[in-house]
């Protein structure tokens, strides 16, 4: 009898030990990242690179990541706001994509339910087609769009994301009703890349960093980037160079948990700034074509408010929200 019981006890011990391991995130200095997208995409890369840099800078003992994809990161945001109230070690990756999703879908939990910490960088999108596509330039795409708006299947991130807005802006610039575009939203960059490679969509768009390995290996052809001028060291022409008057960037940053004190907020911002000076972070910026733009404190909060308005206006202009 006793020996039989020891089996059960061992079982229980494993259970307790593993739970203890799992709840380390609540000890000080173990930073818990919420990433509101499935792994493999730009949100994910931002969080993981920043976490790594925080450990290297000695401002975090360890980091944990949780991925919760869907609806422009607002599903992850809802969980973040619920689960980490007052936790001084919790961070969520955010950006223009999330603001767009909030403006468009008006979810019950918004960024107002979290604490602004810092903006990190800007990045630009690239439009790609599978290598065997007959479309050779953005002009070809625009012509196809003018002929039959529904025939161009655009694949990208969630509804209301920078990806979606940029497509609507291209349509408007081409004189096509933006409400007629055929936009297919995917959860996270991984799923979108698979759909583009498999030819399930006509044109795909995503952050340059997510697509560059497919472009370099020749599996996809890059048609245009959304920046004002060519990206350093990349031959891909901009939209403007191809007669499409659209320029749109995507910023990313981090927010803290709701209900943290001003001092805790400053500590988080300081930690992020320290991490942004690490070599691994600057390497990540360079290899992903991210353009550093660190902004913290009230200025960042104001910036996000401004973004809400700007994105809402551009969505109204293209008919995505009323």
């Amino acid at each position: 009898m006793k020996t039989r019981f020891s089996g059960a006890l061992r079982h229980a011990a494993v259970a307790v030990a593993s739970v203890a391991l799992a709840s380390q995130g609540f000890a000080l200095d173990n930073v818990k990242f919420m990433i509101g997208a499935n792994p493999g995409g730009g949100f994910d890369q931002t969080g993981r690179n920043l976490g790594k840099a925080m450990v290297e800078a000695g401002v975090a003992k360890s980091v944990q990541y949780e991925n919760k994809g869907g609806a422009g990161g607002t599903i992850g945001l809802a969980q973040f706001a619920n689960a980490s109230k007052g936790d001084p070690n919790a961070l969520i990756v955010t950006g223009a994509v999330m603001v767009g999703a909030i403006v468009q879908n008006k979810p019950p939990v918004t960024l107002a339910n979290a604490t602004p910490v810092a903006r990190l960088f800007y990045e630009y999108n690239v439009f790609v087609v599978p290598a065997n596509s007959p479309l050779k330039s953005m002009k070809d795409v625009v012509e196809m769009l003018k002929k039959d708006p529904g025939s161009v299947k655009w694949g990208g991130g969630s509804r209301g994301s920078v990806d979606h807005i940029s497509v609507a802006m291209i349509a408007k610039d081409a004189g096509v009703d933006p409400s007629k575009i055929n936009y297919v939203p995917f959860q996270g960059g991984g799923e979108a890349s698979a759909a583009i490679l498999g030819g399930h969509v006509t044109v795909g768009t995503s952050g340059y960093s997510e697509m560059q390995q497919f472009i370099k290996s020749g599996k996809m052809r890059a048609l245009a980037v959304t920046s004002g001028s060519k990206l350093p060291g990349e031959p891909v022409p901009t939209l403007k160079e191809q007669g499409v008057n659209v320029e749109i960037g995507n910023w990313r940053g981090v927010y803290g948990a709701p209900g943290i004190t001003e001092a805790q907020r400053k500590a988080l911002a300081d930690a992020v700034v320290a991490a942004s000076k690490q070599k691994s972070w600057t390497d990540a910026l360079a290899s992903n074509d991210w353009f550093p733009a660190v902004l913290t404190g009230e200025e960042f909060a104001k910036f996000v408010d401004g973004e809400h308005k700007r994105i809402e206006e551009s969505m109204k202009a293209v008919g995505m929200v009323k």
């Binding site: 869907g70 609806a71 809802a78 969980q79 999703a101 979810p107 939990v109 969630s158």
Partner: peptide
Amino acid sequence: VGMDAIAGIPRYTGNVPEFIDG
């Protein structure tokens, strides 16, 4: 229950915040 994965519209959450993420 929770936000739908395409548009992020909450469904059948009965205003319980824990249900929002499904």
